[in-house]
């Protein structure tokens, strides 16, 4: 399929930024959204143009590193992460707009990469569990009903931002 990408380009935090348009031919429906970016970036490098910076790591939908804002929605049209979005979710000929997450607490670093260290500070403000290594009771000493454990282990995803916080363990500890 063919698509047109409208991507936010911003050299650094000081730069004003602008949209750039890239028509892409030969997109396979089996490609992930990030693989489509890989192909585009490789072609940009070949042309001597700066590739588009974007965050990613696991590409399995679990690390929370990928962070694109696609067609006006975080991670695009599906209830999933950008790395798990595939091109089959788009129509041939479609124009897709990709922006960084714009929020004053997430300043843009470059192109689609934003600074999310504000998240770190939330847990560091006291959202941790205060046990030291060693000297803890046997794991089976305190039974926890399956019902509670199940709720606690449901994957926590707040798709608007990213994978977030461990309310899971909080829930379980509240029960303790």
């Amino acid at each position: 399929m063919k698509i047109t990408l409208k991507v936010w380009r911003q050299k650094n935090n000081q730069d004003k930024g602008r949209f750039a348009t890239y028509p892409i031919e030969d997109v396979s429906t089996d490609m992930s959204f990030l693989e489509m970016f890989d192909v585009l970036n490789e072609s940009l490098v070949k042309k001597g143009e700066d590739p588009i910076a974007f965050d990613h790591d696991c590409r399995e939908g679990i690390c929370g590193m990928c962070s694109m804002y696609i067609n006006g929605r975080p991670h695009g049209p599906l209830q999933t992460t950008t790395c798990q979005l595939h091109m089959r979710s788009f129509k041939d000929g479609e124009t897709i707009t990709v922006e960084p997450w714009r929020a004053s607490s997430f300043p843009v670093i470059k192109d689609l990469v934003v600074d999310r260290t504000s998240f770190e500070r939330i847990q560091q403000a006291g959202g941790f569990v205060s046990v030291n290594t060693g000297g803890v009771p046997d794991a089976n000493e305190i039974p926890i009903p399956k019902r509670i454990a199940d709720v606690a282990s449901i994957q926590q995803r707040v798709l608007d931002v990213e994978h977030v916080w461990p309310p899971a363990r909080m829930l379980q500890l509240c029960y303790l």
């Binding site: 569990v129 046990v131 290594t133 060693g134 803890v136 009771p137 046997d138 794991a139 305190i142 039974p143 926890i144 009903p145 399956k146 454990a149 199940d150 606690a152 282990s153 461990p166 899971a168 363990r169 909080m170 829930l171 379980q172 500890l173 303790l176």
Partner: peptide, 16 residues
Amino acid sequence: DQCVAQGVPFAREYGG
């Protein structure tokens, strides 16, 4: 033991 004390939600049986 350490991970359970930290609240890691390991799978449990009905008996808890």
